[in-house]
Design a protein around this nucleic acid. Structure first.
Lengths: 341, 341
DNA sequence: AGCCCACTTTGGAACGTTTCACAACGGCCC
DNA sequence: GGGCCGTTGTGAAACGTTCCAAAGTGGGCT
């Protein structure tokens, strides 16, 4: 009843354990007749290699993982798709682990993955300074931080979020907005903090009111709706005329709720999102957004990880930084009125 | 340089191997002083448990996996979130594996997961009849098929896709449509086939033209756009007045492209999607869609899997079927004209 | 002083592989 | 007919844990 092992296969085929191993690992150094007998025995018994034992002996796992900030955000699954391409090509399996914006769960995954001796870990951390990450790397597991810059003792791939925030808000300023809100949080997430910094930097160059920050608990659609309610509730005189959201999930929620509560977008409220996920272009009002090279991010991250895993010694950590790009759509564009077809 | 093992810890703490094991697994049966010494040694050496060895000895992996049809489809990440809840509660780790609508990749993951002796596998298969799935289950790995019905020798959770297709098309028929297209594919995917069946079943009850099937290669936004082009290219006299899409990704792509090419939705083309993903409600024209209880699906799947894993013997396979629900929004609703604000 | 007991600690077997040095077996050539 | 070789197959060690039976320690009681 217990799962058959190589020993059982050997017994059944009337050969030694070593021979079974040879059939599995160096099939052409065993005579055709024996090979056949062993292969048959394997099939008859339904033998399945025990990866734990292999790994224990051999030391390597052919597996890598991407610990994602939130698997329900399409931005991250797009990044993951990029990493998957590289993993496929290298013959590695990629596991996606959903951190769910939850420190504890992320920590749990990191511990487990290290214990499992994966080849390497890509991670978009809840908290980039989590000492666990440094510890992991220190003990020899290749770690690449994704979508956040890292210090010189780690590889990272990121997009300049300060620049992104600046681009977004500069665009709004150019369009004449002077009272601008930022929607996003918690601030402890690095991307959020950087995007705020960028926004403020743009504001500082202009003659505008200071940034109103609507801090959220999470970066999802529901929180965006909640922000929409908060904004719509303000008296017109105090309501920001534009909102810059920390990501597209928030922006879509905000957009949806704003429209539902009777605000016109962009006339009453202009909206800029971040990430330019596929759904941004298809939104009620197509969403202006700061685009990041998602797949490239994922591919690069996986490549850096592989490089580190292969070279082990003498590996030089790289911090790749890409540039974001503003994609302007209707959510910030004043159109001639009544323009349906 | 090699990763330190329990043996190293034991040496450093001046105790035996067994004691280190006790500290790790039954801390309160070792004296406080010794425990402290061992804990310190662990910290000093940066010892990390080797999960392979543990598993080899102990036999169990505390891990489960969900092999998803396509991780970029928010429907599946929502299902996964449901499964994650249950996994968290049970103290298991959940790995997401992206099948990418690719048979070979899915097969690769199944093999690997079995070799890894995961506690169980949830899977939304590219091909529900893949013999590999039966084989897996036959050898004792608990398998739950998600979003597809299964035979009596397997657990499954699904939503009645035939009914869903019927609901969607009945709704269109009620709205007066007589020339209806189905967008989706490939047909080898069970959900697609069932939804077509449902659609045809509704049509058979009405006096309408047979279903025009626009078969796609994949179920993503890009293919939806392509379908939009195809539809818009048809002469008005032959163009369907309504499209039922196999999922919301397709529907959103179709919607986007149709609007871009000057078709009004729903006046020139009504659209019904499937899954009611979060972005459907936020679309350019809020999307009518067939909703499935996504999280519930995931939770139930994980629970069935756990039940099977725990009971091993005497487990009775269950096939849970849920009912879909039509959510009507603007993409099929003829409104009074000019209805802004 | 001698016993018993409870509490700690120890040593070694076992889990299922891979790897490696070496044995067995023909066959060939001189 | 003996020595050699190449081809196949074998056996045992090792990987890092967990678990268990058994040994060691000391204190309290008689």
């Amino acid at each position: 009843m217990a799962a058959p092992s190589m020993k059982d296969v050997a017994a059944r085929a009337g050969v030694s354990l070593g021979t079974v191993s040879n059939v599995l690992n160096r099939p052409d150094m065993v005579a055709e007749r024996t090979r056949k007998r062993v292969v048959d025995a394997i099939a008859e018994l339904g033998f399945v290699r025990n990866e734990s034992a292999r790994q224990l002996r051999g030391g390597t796992s052919r597996t890598l993982a991407y610990v994602v900030l939130d698997a329900r955000n399409p931005f991250f699954t797009d990044v993951a798709a990029g990493a998957q391409q590289v993993a496929d090509a290298a013959g590695l399996a990629l596991y996606l682990c959903d951190g769910g914006e939850d420190r504890a769960r992320q920590a749990m995954y990191l511990d487990l993955l290290e214990q499992q001796r994966v080849e390497g870990i890509l991670i978009t951390p809840v908290d980039a300074d989590d000492p666990r990450i440094a510890a992991l790397a220190g003990r020899g597991t290749p770690v690449v931080v994704v979508d956040r810059g890292a210090g010189p003792d780690r590889c990272s791939v990121s997009v300049d979020d300060v620049l992104g925030g600046d681009l977004a808000v500069s665009h709004l300023l150019d369009a004449g907005h002077r009272r601008i809100a930022f929607v996003g949080g918690p601030r402890s997430i690095g991307q959020v903090a950087d995007r705020i910094t960028g926004a403020q930097q743009a504001l500082a160059r202009a003659d505008a009111e200071p940034l109103t920050v609507l801090e959220t608990q999470r970066l999802d659609v529901a929180e965006g709706r909640r922000a929409g309610e908060r904004l719509a509730g303000l008296p017109t005189s105090r309501r920001p005329t534009a909102a810059f959201c920390a990501n597209d999930m928030l922006a879509l929620g905000l957009l949806q709720q704003a429209v539902r509560l009777g605000l016109r977008v962009p006339e009453d409220l202009a909206i800029v999102g971040y990430d330019d996920i596929e759904f941004a272009a298809a939104a009620a009002v197509p969403l202006t957004s700061v685009a990041q090279p998602r797949q490239l991010l994922g591919r690069t991250a996986a490549e850096l990880m592989l490089a580190e895993a292969r070279h082990a010694m003498g590996h030089v950590h790289e911090q790749r930084v890409f540039e974001p790009e503003l994609v302007v759509r209707d959510s910030t564009r004043l159109r001639p009125l009544g323009g349906v077809a």
